[in-house]
Design a protein around this nucleic acid. Sequence first.
DNA 1: CGTGCATGCCACATATTGCAACATCCGCTT
DNA 2: AAGCGGATGTTGCAATATGTGGCATGCACG
Lengths: 260, 260
Amino acid sequence: MSDSQNHKALAPRRHDEILRRLAADGSVGITELAAFFDVSRETIRRDMKFLAERGQLDLVHGGATLFEATEPALTLRSQENAGGKAAIGRAAAALVEDGMVVFLDSGTTTLAVAHALAGKQNLTICTTSLTIALHMCRQPHVRVHMLGGEIDPSEEAAVGIDALDAIGRFRIDVAFLGGGALSPDGEVTDFTRNGAEQRSRMAATAARAYFVLDSSKFGRLTPLRIPRFELAAGVIVDAPPPPAMVEALERKGPKVIVGE
Amino acid sequence: MSDSQNHKALAPRRHDEILRRLAADGSVGITELAAFFDVSRETIRRDMKFLAERGQLDLVHGGATLFEATEPALTLRSQENAGGKAAIGRAAAALVEDGMVVFLDSGTTTLAVAHALAGKQNLTICTTSLTIALHMCRQPHVRVHMLGGEIDPSEEAAVGIDALDAIGRFRIDVAFLGGGALSPDGEVTDFTRNGAEQRSRMAATAARAYFVLDSSKFGRLTPLRIPRFELAAGVIVDAPPPPAMVEALERKGPKVIVGE
DNA sequence: CGTGCATGCCACATATTGCAACATCCGCTT
DNA sequence: AAGCGGATGTTGCAATATGTGGCATGCACG
């Protein structure tokens, strides 16, 4: 910080700062910013409108928040389509045998997988998700490795360089990965750069990797491709995706598995 | 007032926080939230009504609860000697200033410290405890680093070589460490080799380290000394220990701080 | 079975914000 | 120098959010 109280900042500079604060705090107030830049509230409002039209933030009364039309709050997500997620969990659990080393990504669908793994013996679970680690360490006959790193509050999971680094240290039998969307041309995409990279790395590292995606993700669009996605062994879903999507997907490699 | 926080949180931010707390604690109180956000109870009530209409929580007298609880147990253990632990928490929180880097050890007493840190701005929390990480990452204006490693189910926290390793990478302003007992000759001791080593390392690494021990630990005996224990800045307790213990302790170096 | 206290709820007052229309200012071109 | 266009400021009014007080209701406690 430490800049720009003296001279009025030009528009791009303000836009920059607005986004920076947004990323840092999750929300920004109009009045607050107007005072900071020493401009009128109208100007800030215009800035925000401009940014909102480009999808870089969400306007709310009194300011703006992170653009989360893409990513609703975590507590919300775990309840929606609970049935479908459970079905995915069962299908995923069927792929796991006693004694395996299993990686579980963050996300509510992978949490459903974790629940479905109850009863397996002697598993070793590696995860970046706090919730999954907490849940699994309460199970008997399970060893849990938490991959450390900075915690992303919206995922409640470790992200970033430390987590990426830690991934490399494990030999994983099977990995279950989340994703932001299943694009019309049969590819799993993600919300964030970090997430995409982390998943990419897992898909390449694990002996077998599966993406778990509930049907609400079909045909959605999120910004980031997951590199080397085609190395995944399969995609587990709770309802059959459109045939075109299935075909595009299987042409790349991964099988489509539909849970019941 | 270099930046920003003198303004009240925007409505969506409150909604978010309410849901996060709900997920963390299973229930939230109106008065408590009103104080936290510095808004009237009516406003919180309206927020809750809004959320309840969308099925995100259940209204109850005095606050709200989860629609369906996902996480039991842990809140229970921290209830025992809750008063004492809260007092320790407050005393500990008084030692923390906005912007600091704080290490929180695993344990229910350190969890109380975590709760008491609510309201501080811009903290960076490093912890090995899953529960603390989960709780703190739901706080606004807090960055959380989870130290990874194998999870000890009885502690629900990372232990072992990875965690030890990760400790060295941080510059910690203040560390709050648990312990198994406060021995009659004024020393903090521990149950496990790993724990003792981890705490020893923190005591040596952090700029200031405090052991937090509730009064049930006085005069107990556990097998492992914590090496370099005397490097700690203090021991925070909820009731005055026997004078002999205090004297022995302070002769070694650490101050005794009694929370109210 | 009251009593006291905290909470819930409603109505209204107040404050803050959104919006749109118009006025200014500044840099630039001709 | 005049004119132009974009960005910003100003103003008035509507919409929304929040605060406040009165009163009803529920809950704990003797």
